[in-house]
């Protein structure tokens, strides 16, 4: 079988593993944020901003955004290969998706470190 050059890791196994690992990271991040919000009932802007001023939180957030990007790429790549049977359409859609994910990722970095 031809290697799939547009898939995330060029291998079903690595994509499958990455999708699961990224899901765990996103879940941890979500649990953390929900817990944080619960333990800080009267949350104001300075506390919130203070949380994101800390390096570990920026790294944790970035890790989550990268996970989200990978997760989305793998998932949407699967959707395009399932439903888009015409090659130009499929490649076009994949390029658009990759571009969008890239833009979101850069934007998120900018937000995290730009403040």
């Amino acid at each position: 079988m031809v290697t799939n050059i547009t898939s995330f890791g060029r291998s079903g196994l690595s994509d499958w593993l990455m999708q699961r690992v990224s899901a765990v990271i996103m879940a941890l991040y979500t649990v953390f944020l929900v817990a944080y919000l619960l333990f800080n009932p009267g949350l104001d802007y300075y506390t919130w901003s203070g949380l994101f001023d800390q390096t570990w939180m920026r790294i944790f957030s970035l890790l989550t955004f990268i996970s989200l990007a990978a997760h989305a790429w793998i998932g949407l790549w699967t959707v395009t290969t399932d439903y888009l049977k015409s090659t130009p359409q499929r490649v076009g859609a994949q390029m658009l998706i990759i571009l969008a994910i890239f833009v979101y990722l850069v934007w998120s970095i900018q937000i995290l470190w730009g403040a």
């Binding site: 079988m1 799939n4 898939s7 291998s11 079903g12 196994l13 994509d15 499958w16 699967t78 290969t81």
Partner: peptide
């Protein structure tokens, strides 16, 4: 023969 994105992982 099975580790590509389709054979099993679809």
């Amino acid at each position: 023969e099975l580790e590509d994105p389709f054979s099993v992982f679809r």
